[in-house]
């Protein structure tokens, strides 16, 4: 029998791996991957709780919404990263220090 706790522990592990990627990586694309991992952990939680809601299917529907939000975030984020690279010639977030030209 797979209980809710199994899903929660797995998604906590995935979330913390994503957190580590965001904190430790010095490459904007890998930071984006870390954000994706965290969103995926959240989707796993949505789906695991949604199993107990047959009336409105809230968990699964909001999991789908979260997938759409993540796709939009990646599209805009990659466009911004490419622009930043064109301007600064680096994608290390530590070296991108000023907002104006």
């Amino acid at each position: 029998m797979i209980t809710l706790t199994h899903f929660l522990v797995v998604s906590a592990c995935i979330f913390c791996i994503g957190l580590y990627a965001i904190l430790a990586k010095r490459n904007a694309i890998m930071i984006l991957v870390g954000i994706e991992l965290m969103i995926n952990a959240a989707i796993l939680n949505f789906v695991a709780f949604g199993k107990y809601d047959k009336l409105h299917y809230g968990g699964q529907i909001f999991a789908l919404f979260a997938i759409v939000l993540a796709a939009a975030a990646v599209a805009v984020g990659l466009a911004i990263i490419l622009n930043v690279y064109r301007h600064y010639k680096t994608i290390n977030p530590d070296h991108i220090t000023d907002l104006r030209d």
Partner: peptide, 17 residues
Amino acid sequence: FLFALADFVAITQILVY
């Protein structure tokens, strides 16, 4: 996701992600 009986979410995950 399939183990939480969310088949459509799993398919969408593969398609979109």
